[in-house]
């Protein structure tokens, strides 16, 4: 009997804990949105973060984009050639990339490359009491540390996703047209008639914008509220990567259903 009560109590404890964390995360993002350190200082801090969040993620995004496009070209060709429909390779590669793979893959890579780094950096600032030190000097750590990192992530991810799609289409063209010999005119022509700027490309960019908000939000949140021990920082970093990946994949289904499906 005591054990049962204990179990029920632990369920309640976890629910309350989740609600507290959720509310705290929402208040946290509100304070980020309304914290802006003036134009000149803000721009300088933002550029520095765009470098460490965006520019340093370029290599992994470009390389994976290229290889994903090449694999799509290879796999698509081997299947489509059976039906003599290798002209449909261009639409297949480009639609898969701009609608799904570009936004989702770049968000997952971004969570692993930049999200984890953000959490570890901010978590270590918390553990070494740098954030408390800033508060002592009447410098708001949210304005000075968190907000530039958040906006840098939100700006970077859509740009990285566009780059991923473009490099992927290039990789698919390299394999499909240059190596396997699909007709170049049919490849590009069918692609252009199948892909719509507003319907496909723009919706993909909106997707990656949403993913950018979610991933960076989770990263700075877990870093800021990390338990100030080395174990706490490692736990926070793991949480960022796991939760970002799950949220991105789940949100992708919702967005796809709203944008492209018959559900919306």
């Amino acid at each position: 009997m005591h054990r049962l009560i204990h179990h029920i109590q632990s369920i309640g404890q976890k629910t309350i804990g989740f609600c507290i964390a959720f509310g705290r995360a929402n208040l946290f993002i509100l304070s980020i949105i309304f914290a802006w350190p003036g134009f000149k200082l803000g721009a300088r801090l933002l550029v520095k973060q765009l470098y460490s969040v965006g520019v340093l993620s370029l290599i992994i995004i470009v390389v994976s984009g290229g290889f994903v496009g090449m694999v799509l070209g290879l796999q698509g060709y081997t299947t489509l050639i059976k039906f003599g429909a290798e002209q449909a390779l261009g639409p297949m590669i480009s639609l898969a990339l701009v609608r799904e793979l570009g936004p989702v893959m770049s968000a997952l890579l971004f969570a692993g490359r930049a999200g984890s780094a953000l959490t570890a950096e901010i978590g270590l600032m918390r553990a070494t009491e740098q954030l408390s030190g800033m508060e002592m000097m009447a410098v708001d750590p949210i304005t000075r540390v968190i907000a530039p990192r958040f906006w840098a992530g939100v700006i970077s991810l859509p740009l990285l996703a566009i780059l991923f799609s473009a490099v992927g289409v290039w990789g698919g063209t390299l394999v499909g047209v240059n190596w396997l010999g699909v007709d170049e005119g049919a490849f590009w022509g069918n692609m252009q008639s199948a892909v719509d700027w507003h319907e496909d490309v723009w919706n993909g960019i909106i997707k990656s914008f949403v993913f950018g908000i979610l991933v960076t939000w989770l990263a700075v949140f877990h870093g800021y509220y990390a338990t100030p021990t080395s174990e706490g920082v490692s736990l926070a970093t793991t949480r960022t990567v796991v939760q970002s990946s799950l949220v991105v994949l789940a949100m992708d289904f919702v967005l796809t259903a709203l944008m492209f499906g018959e559900l919306g």
Partner: peptide
């Protein structure tokens, strides 16, 4: 590139 070459805008 996505606008002009891929979506034929």
């Amino acid at each position: 590139f996505l606008a002009l070459r891929v979506s034929g805008l």
